[in-house]
Design a binder for these strands. Structure first.
Lengths: 138, 138
DNA sequence: CAGTATCCAGATTGATACTG
DNA sequence: CAGTATCAATCTGGATACTG
């Protein structure tokens, strides 16, 4: 994408009242379903470790409460990203696995993890500089 | 990270007390810097429309308040993803642009937007099914 | 224009129980 | 085990008004 500096209309004003109109971010829909508060770690864990039970998820996610885990799981199930399987036994057993749709996010996770590994150092360095020198202009 | 399904100890229990240990999600660091609440739309807009002033961002983002926009901008600037340029004129003029580091997120945005465009319909369909039939197991 | 200062409403989380 | 139910503590985020 990215025709930088779109030519817009022929006689478009340059800077004054340059017809700046609201545009919707095209990635937002994905953010809502897969990158909200706890959804990413849940999906990521499911994608990495395969089918697992409620407690396994709870432990691996480290620090999530059952209430919140249930909420996220329900949302992901409703959105078709996660499949819940109930086994009527005693004690009850429920397994969660990522759906085929959810699995299509795998490459994205990989790319994101790679970005983090490669660039997070730069981010931290930038913070140090910013906190030392402060912002230049008023 | 990395070694999926670590063999752990030789005589590792299989399912009973299968040494389920907390693992940290490798994409979380990126989420914190670029995919928090308003950060993505801001970065995306900057990436799509190039260098622009505060009000332009404010208008294009549609509905964000100056306070919140300032907060996100400051965070992004601190993290080295956005560059702020102050022009000492009257009236004051400040321009924001995405940094080179921030620009490395471009392909990621493109991939995410593509995913949304391709699969969001399946998500919505899954919701309809779920809301009609409800979840199968108790 | 480019913010900053307040105050407030709503959403998310966390900690703690308590069932089937 | 696999949740659900509550209540309290946060934490953004929104609306509004006000400077340099």
């Amino acid at each position: 994408m990215g025709s930088t500096t779109t030519a817009s209309s022929a006689t478009a004003r340059r800077s004054a009242t340059a017809a700046v109109v609201p545009v919707e971010c095209t990635v937002t829909p994905l953010l809502d379903v897969a990158f909200s508060r706890w959804t990413t770690p849940v999906l990521w864990t499911l994608n990495e470790f395969g089918r697992q039970r409620f407690v396994e998820l709870e432990r691996r996610l480290g620090g999530i409460t059952p209430k919140v885990l249930t909420q996220r799981l329900r949302q992901l199930e409703r959105d078709g990203l996660v499949i819940r399987t109930y086994h009527p036994e005693v004690p009850p057993r429920v397994e969660y696995e990522i759906s085929e749709l959810g699995r299509t996010l795998g490459p994205l996770f990989a790319t994101m993890a790679a970005w983090a590994q490669e660039h997070i150092g730069e981010v931290e360095a930038a913070r140090v500089v910013y906190d030392e020198d402060g912002r230049p202009g008023p």
